[in-house]
């Protein structure tokens, strides 16, 4: 290293107002993973330039709504990154719905070489993500987004099945649906199954069967102690407490004795949701 370069680095180190020195070809890359419609992000940063000015930038990003990665590059001038933030400027995502990663990249394109992570975490309408001195968060941190999900209504004589979406992790808190049996005489035995797409992880059915021409509301809840049927044919069964279901895991019924004219209604699931870390 020649004296000029060494002197320059030494002088920058003495004067450096922040440890994050950006070359002219260093920029910020913002990557979001989001599940909610109409979310918009605003990215603001402050850079102390070599001539002593504090350059303020404001850029936007509209994340994808299917949990796929959306990346954009915020061009920065040469100088010291003093700070910045990413905040939600449209819609109101919950913790668990909009995860953001801020990195320094060399180059001006989204595929530039990432050299340092500055921040990672969820943003909500009330919670921005600051950088560069933020703690790096996991997408599995926090309470998750509380969501009620309406499933498909299956065809006659068919089962209900829902798959945890790609890029999501769920905790199933409760599941309920109505099951109407036809006039065909048979004992129906409704089971709820949790599987990973292949292997069954949990399977529980009612101890009492449902006969012809009846309507039961089948419910599985965390915290239910045992099988209960009330006078209105509300049948309650337990779910594993604190369960976690990854992308591709299924929540499905399997109904013994089902007739082609039996009919499940759409199910309603209460889940806690995160952006999956894998």
């Amino acid at each position: 290293m020649d004296g000029t370069a060494a002197d320059l680095i030494a002088s920058r180190a003495q004067l450096a107002p922040s440890p994050w020195y950006l070359r002219l070809d260093d920029n910020l890359r913002i990557t979001s993973y989001n599940s909610l419609a109409a979310v918009k992000l605003t990215i603001r940063s402050r850079v102390l330039t070599l001539n002593g000015d504090v350059d303020v930038s404001s850029d936007g990003q509209t994340p994808n709504t299917d949990r796929t990665a959306k990346t954009s590059v915020v061009a920065t001038p040469e100088g010291w990154l003093l700070g910045g933030q990413v905040f939600v400027s449209a819609a109101a995502p919950q913790i668990g719905q909009t995860f953001v990663v801020v990195e320094v990249v060399r180059g001006a394109t989204a595929v530039g070489m990432a050299t340092q992570v500055l921040a990672a975490g969820y943003v909500t309408a009330k919670q921005p993500l600051r950088f560069p001195d933020a703690q790096i968060g996991s997408s599995l941190d926090g309470a998750g987004a509380l969501r009620a999900i309406l499933t498909s209504t299956p065809g006659g004589g068919a089962e209900i099945s829902d798959t945890v979406p790609t890029g999501a992790r769920w905790e199933l808190i409760s599941w309920c649906a109505q099951f109407v049996t036809s006039v065909t005489v048979a004992n129906r035995q409704a089971q709820l199954i949790l599987d990973d797409g292949t292997n069954i992880l949990y399977r529980l059915s009612a101890t009492a069967a449902q006969t012809a021409s009846t309507t039961f509301r089948r419910q599985w809840h965390q915290g239910a102690s045992s099988f209960i049927v009330d006078a209105s044919n509300n049948a309650v069964l337990p779910l594993p407490v604190n369960n976690r279901l990854g992308p591709g895991f299924r929540i499905r019924t399997l109904t013994g004795g089902i007739d082609a004219s039996d009919q499940w209604s759409a199910g309603v699931m209460l889940v806690r949701e995160w952006i999956a870390g894998d």
């Binding site: 709504t65 309406l150 068919a158 099945s161 798959t163 109904t255 004795g257 007739d259």
Partner: peptide
């Protein structure tokens, strides 16, 4: 969905009747 998220349908396995 009512909360503004996308629902991804996947067909169920065959029931016993099917």
């Amino acid at each position: 969905q009512a909360d503004g998220t996308t629902y991804f349908h996947a067909c169920p396995p065959l029931s016993a009747a099917e």
